[in-house]
Amino acid sequence: MRPFVYEQPTDISAAVAIASSFTSRDDQPTRANAQFIAGGTNLADYMKLGVAEPARLLDLNRLKDPSLRQIRVTDDGIRFGALVRMGEAADHRDVKQRYPVIADSLRLAASGQIRNMASLAGNVLQRTRCEYFRETSWHCNKRAPGSGCAAMEGFNRQHAVLGTSDACIATYHGDFAQALIALDAVIHAEGSRGTRKIPFAMLHRQPGETPHMETDLAADEIISAIEVPAMPWARRSLYLKIRDRESYAFALASAAVALDLDGETVREARIALGGVATVPWRARAAEQSLQGKRLDDASAGAAADAAFAQAQPRKHNAFKIELGKRTLVRALLETRNMKV
């Protein structure tokens, strides 16, 4: 690990100002000289491995603004301060009641210890766990642009089948983000160019030709809050995560589902898929295929087919298409059967 300067700014504007003075407008946040750290459960790991090498770390845990640590429930929805820990949000009564899909996605992620450290904003910005990205001696277009991708012809069981490109097939491994994208969440960000709201679906970038450009954020922008709109029918929602072991493993496939039902007929469906895509993945074609239909094995199956119509398998991950479909079917039926 390289030596670095460590600072603890106490308000966001100061943190932004420091970041601005050490980064330029075109810097990718993940490659900038100055980077923000909150829970540190991802960045500190990558610094030790030599994957991330910021010269300056700006620790956000001393920021004074109390709203950064609050969960506020209003008629408009729910607002998570950026520094709320995953464990706090997972255990929050209103989150569990009103947005079970959010509580599930958090509860099924990582381990208890990590959930107590990791911040919500840091969680959505976590970087891929691709084995070839994590270890610096492999060719990796995301870590070292233009160097190639060893995963493409390597061991790619964990890799993505949706949103991939010829440059990168690394999976976005997060769970919480699937709930957020399904529920049309909005990100609040503060930077040197002021504050702005970013639809969650616009936050992450598909790899395309430039897999090292991971998000829409500037290097001096800080997420201050995550807002989820009010959605009374989101009480009928869940997150289903399929993995090799019972706990503490990344999804091989997952589905975030929320259903607005009229009897057994779907008024509206929200669907996001995890473990199978390069970014948090909203399955809009699947949602549309269900609209106005009676939700049963057949319509759920058709929605799953629609969700994976564009999937691109590699040697070891082809099973994720079938698994992803079944995961979605099961999630849809289990959501339908929820007693709300």
Binding site: E131, R134, G154, F155, R245
Partner: peptide, 12 residues
């Protein structure tokens, strides 16, 4: 390839 306990799974 999977040279750590993130990807080398053992029962929890």
């Amino acid at each position: 390839v999977n040279r750590d306990l993130q990807d080398y799974l053992v029962p929890v």
